[in-house]
Simulated assay, not measured.
Amino acid sequence: MKQFEDLKLMPGASVQLVVVGNDQQNYSLDTVYIGSLALHSLLVAMPSPHLEVQWRSGMRLAMTVIMPTGVATLSSRIDAIGERPYSYIHLSYPQEVVFREVRGAARVKVELPAKVAKVDEGDDSSGFQSRVLDISVSGLKLATDTNIGRVGDELTIHITMYFAGIERELSLPAVIRARLANANNEDQTYANVYGVQFLPLPDEQRILLHAFVLNGLQAGSCATV
Score class of each variant (00 low, 15 high):
G82D: 11
S75I: 04
G35R: 01
S48W: 01
G70W: 05
L61H: 02
I66A: 13
P94R: 01
M67H: 02
M63G: 08
A45S: 13
H40M: 08
I81A: 02
S92W: 09
Q25R: 15
S48F: 08
M63W: 01
L142Q: 08
Q129N: 08
A106M: 05
R100M: 07
H90L: 15
G104F: 03
M59W: 04
A62F: 05
V20W: 03
V32N: 00
S48Q: 14
V20S: 09
G21R: 04
E121W: 06
A117D: 05
F4Q: 00
V132W: 04
K118T: 10
V18Y: 01
P68S: 09
V98H: 13
Y27H: 15
V98M: 11
H40D: 12
K115I: 02
E83S: 15
G70Y: 06
D124K: 08
R56I: 05
W55M: 11
Y93S: 13
A72M: 04
T31S: 07
S130T: 04
G70N: 10
Y27C: 14
S92N: 15
D134A: 03
Y33C: 00
R107W: 02
D120G: 02
P49A: 11
G58M: 10
R131P: 00
R56Y: 11
A72T: 02
M10E: 08
F4Y: 12
S126D: 13
Q95D: 14
